[in-house]
């Protein structure tokens, strides 16, 4: 990690006095531009976060009970529930982000071609994204219903056994490999079928968002570049690899960062899809991501442990922050800005 001082002052290193002055006047101007956003974000984000940090240093169920310093953090490091939910979160991110990005890039490129009915297709692909996650989860819960669900109907049509979907805590790798007659231990079972059902809903809903951003990114690429490449006789694959993909990299980078953050703090959909069946995050906590764990700990339906939950939230935040910085450092550097 770079030192804070370097980050702060690297711009002024080696500037002439005049340039320095311009730098400071620009700084003033920049903060004027930033003022409205800062006011809102400080009031409704920074302050609550500081407050939450203070809560995390206390034994705090509903009200403050006593100051315990870093004790909540220390206990969390040995809390198997936290690590288990972090694993679920990682599965969830791995199972949603790459697929949603790849599929939406593919669709965006298809839609960017000169074809009839683009508007209709774009609208249709985008529709899931404007639907509230809660409504979508209600609908998907119904689609995946073990008894009356239409997915099980389709499975039966093509000759498969119906599945339990959101009720199934068994890992999908385990289910798959055991069908082939292999014995798989629990720990190697992979994400549960229930989590996979949630992932499917997430991908369905994320595609439209990614696609729109990708379409905007595609629109930013100069047409002349394509024409020049075609005149040179480049294949479409070469065009994609040498022009489209590199020039889309700021878009991809943006989507990657945002998608990872979103998947790490995803809550509404998972909650709405799993809560009608025992505690949210079921079955057997196999869909309990860190945010669901935090929620269950902080409010759930009773016995709130807000101090402990706040500490877990800061651990989550640290994990995501590190992930984001890593992305900025190692992926961000490969991003091609025109």
């Amino acid at each position: 990690m770079p030192k804070l001082g370097d980050l702060l002052f690297k711009d002024t290193v080696g500037l002439t006095p005049g340039a320095k002055r311009r730098y400071w006047s620009e700084t003033l101007a920049a903060y004027l531009y930033l003022l409205p956003a800062i006011l809102i974000i400080v009031t409704f984000h920074f302050f609550p976060i500081f407050y939450a940090f203070f809560i995390s240093l206390n034994k705090w169920s509903i009200l403050q009970e006593r100051f315990v310093g870093l004790q909540n953090y220390a206990r969390l490091l040995w809390d198997p529930d936290l690590w288990n939910s972090l694993l679920v979160t990682i599965w969830y991110a791995l199972g949603t982000v790459p697929f949603a990005l790849a599929i939406s890039l593919f669709i965006a490129i298809l839609l960017f071609q000169n074809i009839q009915g683009r508007g209709i297709f774009r609208t249709v692909y985008f529709l899931p994204n404007i639907t509230s996650v809660v409504a979508a989860a209600v609908v998907w819960g119904w689609v995946f219903n073990a008894q009356y669900g239409v997915i099980n109907y389709f499975l039966e049509l093509i000759g498969f056994q119906p599945l339990q979907w959101i009720l199934e805590p068994t890992g999908v790798f385990k289910m798959f490999l055991e069908n082939l007659g292999l014995n798989v231990p629990e720990w190697a079972g992979g994400p549960s079928l229930a989590l996979v059902a949630v992932m499917i809903m997430t991908i369905w809903s994320a595609i439209g968002f990614n696609m729109i951003i990708y379409l905007a990114g595609l629109g930013n690429i100069s047409k002349e570049l394509y024409e020049a490449a075609r005149i040179d006789g480049a294949t479409e694959w070469q065009v994609f690899r040498k022009i489209t993909f590199p020039l889309l990299s700021p878009t991809t980078f943006f989507l990657l960062v945002v998608s990872v953050i979103r998947s790490f703090r995803a809550f509404d959909g998972i909650y709405a899809m799993t809560t009608r069946n025992g505690p949210a995050g079921g079955p057997l906590n196999t869909t309990r991501t860190v945010t669901v764990y935090i929620y269950n700990t902080a409010f759930g339906a009773g016995n709130p442990k807000m101090g402990y939950a706040a500490a877990a939230a800061f651990i989550l935040m640290a994990v995501v922050l590190i992930l984001t910085i890593v992305q900025f450092r190692y992926v961000g550097e490969k991003v091609h800005y025109e």
Partner: peptide, 18 residues
């Protein structure tokens, strides 16, 4: 960016106090 990483559920009550 860090504010994007804080689950909303955690800052719900502090926000309410504001």
């Amino acid at each position: 960016m860090a504010t994007m990483m804080m689950p909303f559920e955690v800052i719900l009550i502090p926000n309410f106090l504001i």
